[in-house]
Computed example of a mutant assay.
Amino acid sequence: MMSGLEEALAEALSPSWAQRVRAGRHLASFADVPEAAGTLVGLLLDAEDTAVTRRAAEALARVGTVAAMRLIALAVAKADDNQADWLQTGVHDALVGLGGTQDVAAACGKLVQDPEEAVRRGAAAVSAWADDTRC
C-alpha cells in the first residue's frame, strides 16, 4: 500500500491535468521533503496545462512556509513569461483567499538572503506580488 506522499508523486506523472492539480495540492504540505520538492517545481512549470501551474502555486502559497515559497521562487526564476503570469495568479489567489500576505512576505524576506541567486531573484518577485496584493 502506498503512502499519501507516494500516491501524490505517482499522480503528478499523470497525463490528466486534473490529477496533476490534485497531486500539487497534496504535495504542497511536503514542500520540505526532497522527493516532493523536485516534483512540485515540475508541476509549477507544467508545460501542458496552466491550471496545474496556477493551482500548484496557490497550494504552496497557502502553505506559506519558507520551503514552500522557495519552490515558487525557483519556479519563478526558471519560468517563461506565460508561466510567470500563472504563478503570480496562483499566489494571488492564495493571498486574496486567506489574507495571508504576512506569512508569504516573511518567508520571502528570508529567501532574499538565500545562497542561490535564482531563489533570491524569484523571492524578490514573489515579495513584490504580495506587496501588490496588500494594496
Rank of each mutant, 00 (worst) to 15 (best):
residue 75 A to M: 08
residue 98 L to R: 05
residue 65 T to V: 10
residue 54 R to N: 10
residue 135 C to E: 15
residue 129 W to K: 00
residue 128 A to N: 05
residue 17 W to M: 04
residue 129 W to M: 02
residue 75 A to K: 03
residue 85 D to R: 05
residue 57 A to Q: 10
residue 105 A to G: 04
residue 44 L to Q: 13
residue 119 V to N: 03
residue 92 H to M: 07
residue 2 M to I: 12
residue 110 K to M: 14
residue 12 A to N: 12
residue 56 A to P: 02
residue 28 A to P: 10
residue 4 G to M: 10
residue 17 W to I: 01
residue 96 V to K: 12
residue 13 L to S: 13
residue 110 K to P: 00
residue 88 Q to G: 01
residue 83 Q to Y: 01
residue 86 W to I: 03
residue 115 P to I: 10
residue 29 S to C: 08
residue 131 D to P: 00
residue 101 T to P: 00
residue 47 A to E: 15
residue 26 H to N: 08
residue 40 L to H: 06
residue 133 T to M: 14
residue 27 L to I: 14
residue 101 T to G: 07
residue 65 T to M: 12
residue 88 Q to Y: 01
residue 46 D to S: 03
residue 6 E to S: 07
residue 52 V to N: 05
residue 30 F to I: 07
residue 118 A to G: 13
residue 31 A to W: 11
residue 106 A to N: 09
residue 61 A to V: 04
residue 104 V to G: 01
residue 100 G to M: 11
residue 106 A to Q: 13
residue 81 D to F: 00
residue 129 W to T: 01
residue 59 A to M: 11
residue 99 G to L: 07
residue 42 G to I: 13
residue 76 V to T: 06
residue 99 G to D: 14
residue 35 E to I: 03
residue 109 G to T: 12
residue 108 C to P: 01
residue 93 D to E: 13
residue 52 V to D: 10
residue 119 V to W: 04
residue 19 Q to V: 08
residue 5 L to V: 13
residue 91 V to C: 05
residue 118 A to K: 10
residue 122 G to L: 04
residue 6 E to K: 11
residue 33 V to F: 03
residue 89 T to H: 02
residue 74 L to D: 06
residue 107 A to S: 14
residue 65 T to A: 11
residue 63 V to H: 07
residue 38 G to F: 11
residue 46 D to G: 03
residue 107 A to C: 08
residue 75 A to G: 05
residue 105 A to I: 09
residue 60 L to H: 08
residue 120 R to K: 12
residue 130 A to P: 04
